[in-house]
C-alpha cells in the first residue's frame, strides 16, 4: 500500500491517500467542509465554490485540489466561513426557494446549510426571477425555481444505455438544467428515485409519488448537515 500523505487542516494533523482531493480527505479525518456540487466518487465540478479553503494565502476549492504533502489548509476561519454564508445567500436570492411548500424540505442540503450557517435573511436583494417548470417528462418534474445548477445530475446520471438525461442549457444567469423528456420516459421507478436523491435541493421531483417520510423526521430536521462528520459546537 502506498504511503499516506500528511497534512493539516486548521492545525489538526490529517492523513490522506495519494491523489485524494482535500474535501474527501477532510471528511475522512472528521473535518467538515461544506459543499453542494460535490459527490464522492464522481469527478468534482468545483462550481458551487462553497468548499473554498485557504492554502498558502490563496483560496482553492477543496473538491478539485489534490492533497499534497505538508499542506497547511485553513478551513474554519471567519474569512472563509463568511464567504460560504454569502454564497448560500446568493443561491437563495437567485432562485425561488420556498421551503414550506417544497417536497424536499428537511432533506434539502441548501436549506440545511442555511441552518448550519445560521442564515437569517440574505444580505442581497431577492431577485424573484421567473423560472420555468418542465413537466414534459412522464417520470420527473424539473422545478428550475429550486435548481442551484450544481450539475450533480448531469455528472452522475445516465440512462441504462449510458446516455445523458440531463444537460445544461444556455449560459450565465440564464443557465438552466435541461431534461431529455423522451429518454427519461424509459427510466425505471428506482432510477427516477435515484435522480431525485442525487439532487441536493428539490429541483428534480418524481411524478406520481407522494411523501414517504413526514416533515419533522427527515435527514436534517434533527441535526445539522455535516454532523456525521463534525458536529456544530
Amino acid at each position: 500500500m502506498s504511503e499516506k500523505i500528511k497534512f493539516t487542516i486548521d492545525g489538526k494533523e490529517c492523513f490522506a491517500e495519494p491523489g485524494q482531493n482535500i474535501l474527501d480527505a477532510a471528511t475522512d479525518n472528521g473535518v467538515y467542509i461544506p459543499a453542494l456540487c460535490h459527490m464522492r466518487g464522481i469527478k468534482p465540478a468545483g462550481s458551487c465554490r462553497l468548499c473554498n479553503v485557504k492554502i498558502a494565502g490563496r483560496l482553492m476549492t477543496a473538491c478539485t485540489t489534490p492533497v499534497e504533502h505538508g499542506m497547511d489548509i485553513e478551513n474554519d476561519i471567519p474569512e472563509i466561513q463568511g464567504l460560504r454564508l454569502a454564497i448560500i445567500e446568493m443561491l437563495f436570492v437567485e432562485g425561488n426557494h420556498f421551503c414550506p411548500a417544497c417536497e424536499k424540505s428537511g432533506n434539502c442540503e441548501l436549506q440545511a446549510l442555511a441552518y448550519r450557517y445560521q442564515m437569517m435573511v440574505p444580505r442581497f436583494p431577492y431577485e424573484f426571477p421567473v423560472k420555468e417548470i418542465d413537466a414534459s417528462s412522464p417520470k420527473l418534474i424539473i422545478d428550475r425555481n429550486r435548481c442551484i445548477l450544481c450539475k450533480r445530475c448531469i455528472r452522475s446520471f445516465t440512462d441504462e444505455n449510458g446516455k445523458n438525461i440531463f444537460a445544461f442549457k444556455k449560459r450565465g444567469h440564464k443557465l438552466q438544467i435541461n431534461i431529455d423528456a423522451k429518454l427519461s420516459a424509459n427510466l425505471s421507478d428506482e432510477m427516477a428515485q435515484k435522480a431525485m436523491d442525487i439532487c441536493p435541493v428539490g429541483a428534480i421531483i418524481r411524478k406520481e409519488k407522494g411523501f414517504d417520510q413526514p416533515i419533522g423526521t427527515r435527514k436534517y430536521d434533527k441535526v445539522p448537515i455535516g454532523s456525521d462528520i463534525k458536529s456544530v459546537i
Partner: peptide, 21 residues
C-alpha cells in the same frame, strides 16, 4: 459580464447580477 459568464460558478453567475443591480 452578466451576458458572457458561463454560469458554472455561483459567485460569477449570481453576484454579477447583484452587483449590477
Amino acid at each position: 459580464f452578466i451576458e458572457e459568464s458561463c454560469g458554472s460558478c455561483v459567485p460569477c453567475r449570481a453576484l454579477t447580477v447583484i452587483l449590477k443591480n
